Simulated assay, not measured.
Amino acid sequence: MMEGSITAIFKMYLFLLCILAILSVAIFFIQVNQINEYKQIVNYQIERNGGLTPEAISKLKDYDQKHFSGRFSIESPMLNQKVKYGDEVDYTVHSTFEILYFEIPNVKIPIKGSALSLTR
């Protein structure tokens, strides 16, 4: 009689753990997918401002704080420089993601991108 109740409690605990794991993985992949949206915003700012100018970086930081809680940062050899029309600007978006519900170290993901300056 006692083994049946212990087994039931163990199954409920295991079921809850599986649900939390699935939820945690789903939230992680939703957050990782947000990198594509941020890269699109970075490309737009590079095209409109002629590179990663201080104005473009300020707009990107504001957008990041407003929509992504400051999760992303940009690294580029052409940071704070205006480039000529048609020049390519290479950059790397660094992001850190937290795995919810589990004691796992944060995941750091660098994603490379590039865009053309379309300002004359």
Rank of each mutant, 00 (worst) to 15 (best):
M2Y: 09
G4A: 08
G4T: 09
S5K: 11
I6F: 03
A8R: 01
A8D: 01
A8E: 05
F10E: 07
K11M: 15
K11Q: 15
M12D: 00
L16T: 12
L17Q: 06
C18F: 12
L20W: 07
A21M: 12
A21P: 01
I22A: 12
L23T: 13
V25Q: 06
I27R: 15
I27K: 13
F28K: 02
F29I: 14
F29V: 14
Q31H: 13
V32Q: 08
V32S: 04
N33Y: 12
Q34H: 14
N36V: 03
Y38E: 02
Y38Q: 03
I41C: 00
V42S: 06
N43I: 00
N43G: 11
Y44P: 00
Q45P: 00
Q45T: 06
R48A: 04
L52H: 02
T53A: 13
P54D: 08
E55W: 03
S58G: 04
S58N: 03
K59A: 10
L60K: 04
Y63N: 15
D64V: 15
Q65N: 15
K66L: 06
K66H: 13
F68V: 00
G70L: 13
S73H: 05
S73D: 10
E75K: 14
P77V: 05
P77Y: 05
M78I: 03
N80L: 10
Q81M: 10
Q81P: 00
Q81C: 08
V83L: 09
K84M: 03
G86Q: 05
V89L: 09
Y91A: 05
T92A: 06
T92H: 08
V93Y: 07
H94N: 15
H94C: 01
F97Q: 04
F97P: 01
E98D: 04
I99N: 02
L100M: 10
Y101H: 00
F102V: 00
P105V: 03
V107H: 02
V107K: 06
V107M: 03
K108W: 00
I111R: 15
G113C: 10
G113E: 03
S117M: 04
T119I: 08
R120V: 01
